[in-house]
């Protein structure tokens, strides 16, 4: 089955990004496909490569990047929400791309299920 995922909150502030990541991992482990992860609202902050968590904490951004690299997951950051919050190509972490809200709607149309993680 094809899943679309929406992440609406930033890393470390809210559990949404952690929950979404663990959901993706479990879905992939079961042989499902993650069609796309779409980052919206403060969720766009998950794509900042300037993030530097302390060493004993999980690296949320790097974890998403690794998932994109290893599993070929499409990580899309909403351009309008990103520009508002200072996320640009210059500071975008590997594996993420910036695109329009149409990518979210397309995920809703193409995926069998759309699951939202937010506040």
């Amino acid at each position: 089955m094809k899943f679309g995922i929406v992440v609406n909150e930033g890393p470390y502030q809210h559990q949404a990004s952690d929950s979404a990541y663990l959901f993706c991992k479990a879905a992939l482990a079961q042989g499902h496909e993650i069609f796309r992860v779409f980052f919206y609202h403060d969720g766009v902050n998950n794509a900042s490569r300037l993030t530097e968590p302390p060493q004993d904490d999980r690296n949320i951004v790097a974890r998403w990047s690794r998932l994109a690299e290893e599993q070929g997951i499409d990580l899309v950051v909403c351009v309008a929400a990103a520009l508002r919050r200072g996320i640009k190509d210059e500071n975008l972490a590997p594996g993420f791309r910036i695109s329009g809200l149409g990518q979210l709607v397309e995920a809703g149309i193409q995926a069998d299920r759309l699951v939202t993680f937010g506040d």
Binding site: M1, A26, A27, Q30, D112, R113, T116, F117, G118, D119
Partner: peptide, 20 residues
Amino acid sequence: VDYGGFVDLVARNKTCQSWL
């Protein structure tokens, strides 16, 4: 349920809604 069970619940239902 664990995360695998979460995935199963989403797959089993035609739609899901997060009450944010």
